[in-house]
Design a protein around this nucleic acid. Sequence first.
DNA 1: TTTGGAGTTACGGTTATCCACAATGTTGTT
DNA 2: AACAACATTGTGGATAACCGTAACTCCAAA
Lengths: 209, 209
Amino acid sequence: MTPTPCSSVAFLIDDDEAVRDALSWLLRSRGIPSRDWSSAEAFLTDYSPQMQGCLVVDIRMQGMTGLELFDRLRDLECRLPIIFLTGHGELSKAVQVLKQGAFDFIEKPFNDNELADRVLEAITWDEARRTRGQQSHAIHNRLRSLTSREKEIMARIIKGQMNKIIADELNIAMRTVEAHRSHVFEKMGVKSAVELATLLAENGISVSF
Amino acid sequence: MTPTPCSSVAFLIDDDEAVRDALSWLLRSRGIPSRDWSSAEAFLTDYSPQMQGCLVVDIRMQGMTGLELFDRLRDLECRLPIIFLTGHGELSKAVQVLKQGAFDFIEKPFNDNELADRVLEAITWDEARRTRGQQSHAIHNRLRSLTSREKEIMARIIKGQMNKIIADELNIAMRTVEAHRSHVFEKMGVKSAVELATLLAENGISVSF
DNA sequence: TTTGGAGTTACGGTTATCCACAATGTTGTT
DNA sequence: AACAACATTGTGGATAACCGTAACTCCAAA
């Protein structure tokens, strides 16, 4: 495994202090920094979208359960990978949360090596997700800088329509389409329609304007 | 739920005849056709890639277990969705197979409605997958019809390179590039480089030639 | 009222694409 | 040897893309 960057942290949430301590110790011994909270509520008050790394959450806690926390974080559009811990072998819940996108589900008592590996996997996954997100974010920023007319012309360009056709359909001069087209390329940071189409398709963006 | 097309079938694999009968009856009452086998081995001898629908497999059977069947089907590149049944609440196995791509994991005794719904979901998913697969297959057929030189030119086209540049880099006449380019468009069924780039990117195809 | 962004358009020109028709050389198969 | 597929190139022309420069209008914010 690669050494963990200091920017990624394991966020531990469990109402059993002994478990938190054991986890902290385990992860520290692997070079993984961690922070811990004794309840989902406490974590939520501290939560910020800047946090990066992964969550390790006991599914059964006083007050808000791990499942409820999961839902709440989804509402906040939090995409941090979550590893659930359970001491009760609740299979149906495991299946449910995994299908909803939880990263992993581990029974207590857990194997130390396995847990640490999962945490590392989750952190790695989160970093990859974050990188993808930045790419996508940059593109969306560029898209937002387009005027609505430019977006409309762009949508037609990537459908393969020629300037002449676009001009006819929008009842404007071809030269105008050319001007918009040029602006679109400049703002989107590409040099051709091909590059533009590839950029958008690779990021799953369909322009409807 | 939409009525189940007769082409999709639930394939039931369980060494307990009573379970098979109960499942068959349940599914038939919902209009879902099914076939059943008493062992993974028996299913494998009958298996064909033409089968469409979903599998419902008891995880613990005499001889080959459900998990082993899962692996075996993966080797055969079978993409049928699999719903596992278990009577023993084996959480760690549930987590494992779900992360490997199993469709669902249901504890016995199961709720009839729930199981039938899952089977329908799985069948629907399989049909969608099959549709996507056909699209992708058609594109790959077209890609295979390209000569290696044409693939090389195509790779450069979708990078946004101009004919002139391509000609220079390959030390051939521009006219030759034009000829290849024209063939590529014709064989791939598109009318412009933009359509080609979109087609490939949307299907996650990166051309390296 | 002034300023500025957005949308629009024209002129004149360069470059690139696309195409029909025609042809040559190479390679591998039958 | 004969044939087919492939890669190659040419001529000449129609069509489209691209660009710099320069306006004009509309509209909203300062």
